[in-house]
């Protein structure tokens, strides 16, 4: 049995997209091809995020440990959690719940990503590649927003103040999505839509407060499911701002609450 690695790149030069970094602020000529409502200086904004996150120092990997509560239709489960994110956008979340272990893993980023989840059956289930087309690690997006790791395959736009997801409070709005060239129009269109991620930043601290994107169900049906992550209780750990409370909602319903108790910075 071969190991599946998910991708839909329609180019022979697939390797060039694998394990490269994240977001780049595209020149105005490229951004003009987007449908984004506004394109201001995303490079500057990303720089501000990076400065707020780590003071500009390059962070290679962060491991968070803590406690998690999992909600599912009236059921609640809890246990320790370990989350690891790298500057390349790879991550792993390991939940030791009372009903069994849950794993969510991503290797590679953007179009080179491969994702899987493991549930109580102990088997790794591959996730449709389109659900991996996200430009930032969902539980720690700032690690993906380090200017030195930005990829030319991604576009970003500073949309100014805006409301994101279910939030009613306006935040500084960074919109990011994948865009490749030389591919069939349908692929480019699909990639743009399915990779679109909105990040809301505290206008004072410039740290991420909310992140929102859409995924499709596991069976590949073309039905958008909203995923939203919220970050709060930022604390300084060795000069890096870490959210000590991370919450993830699916279809606006709280699914996962993570209370971070320690962070290891590399």
């Amino acid at each position: 049995m071969c190991l599946l690695k998910q991708s839909v790149i329609r180019t022979a030069n697939i390797a060039s997209f694998i394990c490269v970094g994240m977001i780049v602020a595209m020149p105005a000529t490229v951004l003009a091809q987007q449908t984004l409502p506004q394109q201001t200086n995303a490079t500057a904004l990303i720089g501000q995020i990076s400065n707020a996150f780590s003071g500009g120092q390059v962070i290679h990997q962060i491991t968070l440990s803590g406690d998690a509560i999992w909600h599912a239709g009236g059921q609640e489960d809890s246990g320790p959690v370990t989350l690891t994110a790298t500057m390349t956008g790879e991550f792993q979340m390991t939940l030791q719940l009372s009903r069994g272990q849950k794993l969510e893993t991503q290797t590679g980023t953007g179009t080179g990503a491969a994702c899987s989840w493991t549930g109580a059956d102990g088997k790794a289930h591959n996730i449709d590649l389109g659900n991996c087309w996200k430009p930032a690690v969902w539980f720690l997006p700032a690690i993906s927003l380090q200017p030195s790791m930005l990829s030319s395959s991604l576009v970003a736009a500073d949309l100014g103040q805006g409301v994101i997801g279910s939030e009613s409070t306006p935040y500084r709005h960074l919109n990011a999505q994948l865009q490749l060239t030389g591919l069939p129009a349908a692929t480019i269109d699909s990639m743009e839509k399915r990779s679109t991620t909105d990040i809301g930043l505290d206008p004072t601290t410039m740290l991420p407060v909310v992140l929102e994107y859409k995924v499709h169900p596991d069976n590949g049906a073309s039905i958008p499911i909203s995923i939203e992550a919220h970050y709060s209780n930022y604390q300084d750990v060795n000069g890096v701002k870490i959210p000590f409370l991370i919450q993830r909602s699916v279809n606006n319903s709280l699914q996962l609450e993570i209370t971070v108790t320690s962070a290891q910075i590399n």
Partner: peptide
């Protein structure tokens, strides 16, 4: 409507050349 799932078996992941394509 239809369901659409994308994957890549990766170089050497398949038994034929075509299996190496996403």
């Amino acid at each position: 409507s239809f369901d659409s799932v994308s994957f890549d078996e990766g170089p050497g992941g398949g038994t034929t050349k075509s299996d190496e394509c996403p």
